[in-house]
Design a protein around this nucleic acid. Structure first.
Lengths: 343, 343
DNA sequence: AAGATTTATGTAATCGGTTGCATGAATTTT
DNA sequence: AAAATTCATGCAACCGATTACATAAATCTT
């Protein structure tokens, strides 16, 4: 058993006294190979424990049947849902996946891009890392006509295929909800406004304020990275503000949780003193106290849609040039961290 | 730019009027290629935008320079730390990674194994899924002498290379700590005792009880999967017990958090009425209230060690047959969910 | 300076499938 | 029954890098 030489189609061919070409065709389900021969081939393949050599195949066909996925992190509910969605669609279509994560570093993201390019993935699905500013590292793919679909964190220059939620609307909904709970001064804890998702949510926040006739106060905008420290810092800043805010719209559940914990330590009651809304609907949201109002981000759907678009393009069914932007539905989930009005 | 034909070493060779063999050697840093030629080659490679073809290389060399990683899930702190550790070591050594996750399903795990086998990874690092009972799907790797290192969830039949923590000791520490906080009836919320990690922790729990002269009560052992529902069920069962337990040792932070939330909803005070210890040191542990005492599981170290062992074996520096079991240090982190005695 | 050794490079086979073209046999058409 | 068509399979080139072996040039030895 051990140390066995690899079985090739030549071995199969020799055993059956037919040509390797026939074996190859038989295995590929080529029409015009007789049923009898086909059966003999398959039986012998089974018997000899043959496994096809991807490299020979890819070398000849110049296709890898592999799709690359680039994400910023793996440890959120949202991302793993997206991956599940992508996986479902690609597996059905007979494609393999290579998943690369950048740990939120633009440098690592560029390295991953080089690597996947080197591996010659047939297509790419990507969400940008936190500090990615330019998209140069995707240029090689475009130069070689390798299709790329972006999701979630994208660069919305209108020239690429992207799958997103309506972040502005979500920001609006979150803010509007806080306003409906009689919040008058709503802090916005978010991340770099260079990143589309945060810029859009911010826009929604401002629009909601505007529509209610409330002024926007720049001091209420707290920008940080998405670390635990960022949440603590935000809470400390909020404590120092006079008058103190009575609502927080935070664009990340984890940071919202850290923020809430820190505020509670300082004696703030949530939602009575400050109402809080997060974003993403991560598992953490209903384990903390009070449970966190948040925006549900349909990861599975986004993954499925991104993957389906890519694969349809690869199979020539549709063309990515035409479908520029897909917007996936999302919704506000109201829990205890924000409800101050009794019915 | 676009539609450009792929550049090969033949193109480079033609341009420089040398042979493809020289180009190949120059690129591989072969000694005995003059510095001048080497420089010319590298310059031309740069200029023409050559990228090497992995498939041709792998086909010829019968090596993929790729390591497969199989994990049960991606969404825990622990697993992402392990991945980070593996990544660090393998990248340094010039190996690529393919990460496959089984979503805790033995069936998917077997499919992943087939896939990675098909892809001919040079080595494998794996943690078993929840309901994996036999290791048949790893047999093909062993038959072909592809080295496999298991970590965390393993089958400890003494015949494989495994990287683990001392789960029994951790279970002992956790239980002992609860006992030191004057707990008299400690429930043990865990998962299938067929899985080594849970079996060992259970053993530690029982040993600690025994050493303190306390009886073991079978009714206090609550086995479930690791879902949210399992946590709720466990809490409900604990509420029904008479006399009610005054301590819980839960082998998973997430389930511990769910349990705590459910108990609190029913008016139980933690740690006064019931003290709780979790396992893993996930981020959630210091966001919930009270913060969770837990066992720190050094993911990065485990990943690094597993990867280093595998790579040393691949490079012929060491032999996996010899290093059977590596035990990584771990420790108890005491937070508020378990501290009842004031100093 | 002739022979021995080292250095730098070339030649050609090889890895294992895939596929355009060719061919002979079987079947259908007229 | 001869001609036309279809069917099943074979031949051989090809994908692009690697490498054992060969060879020519340069350097060293005595």
């Amino acid at each position: 058993m051990r140390e066995a030489k690899e079985v090739t189609i030549y071995d199969i061919a020799k055993k059956l006294n037919i040509s390797p070409a026939t074996v190859s065709r038989g295995l590929a389900g080529h029409p015009g190979i007789s049923k009898k021969t086909k059966k003999k081939i398959i039986d012998t393949v089974e018997e000899m424990g043959y496994r096809s050599n991807h490299f020979a195949r890819n070398l000849r066909q110049k296709q890898t049947h592999t799709i690359g996925v680039m994400v910023h992190e793996l440890n959120s509910n949202f991302i793993t849902s997206v991956l599940a969605g992508i996986e479902k669609v690609t597996t059905e279509a007979g494609y393999d996946l290579i998943i690369a994560h950048s740990s939120e570093s633009a440098k690592k993201e560029a390295a991953n891009a080089r690597n996947l390019f080197q591996k010659r993935v047939d297509g790419l699905i990507a969400s940008l890392s936190f500090d990615t500013t330019d998209l140069d590292h995707f240029q090689p793919f475009l130069n070689k006509d390798v299709p790329v679909v972006f999701f979630d964190r994208v660069e919305q220059d209108g020239n690429r295929t992207v799958v997103v939620i309506d972040n502005a609307k979500c920001g609006y909904m979150a803010t509007e909800h806080l306003l409906s709970q009689e919040c008058k001064r709503i802090a916005h804890v978010t991340s770099s406004l260079n990143r589309n998702v945060y810029a859009q949510r911010y826009k929604g926040y401002r629009d909601a304020l505007y529509d209610k006739g409330l002024p926007f106060d720049e001091k209420l905008l707290l920008v940080g990275d998405l670390s635990e420290q960022a949440g603590i810092d935000a809470a400390n800043q909020i404590m120092k503000m006079k008058p103190r805010p009575d609502g927080i719209f935070c664009t990340n559940d984890f940071v919202a949780a850290v923020c809430m914990r820190t505020l509670k330590e300082k004696g703030i009651r949530i939602p009575e003193d400050i109402a809080v809304v997060g974003f993403n609907n991560d598992a953490i949201g209903h384990l903390i106290e009070p449970t966190l109002t948040t925006i549900n981000y349909p990861g599975i759907d986004m993954g499925e849609i991104a993957a389906r678009n890519l694969i349809n393009h690869l199979k020539g069914i549709s063309n990515l040039q035409q479908t520029n932007t897909v917007i996936v539905r999302s919704e506000l989930i109201i829990r205890n961290s924000s409800v101050r009005k009794k019915k």
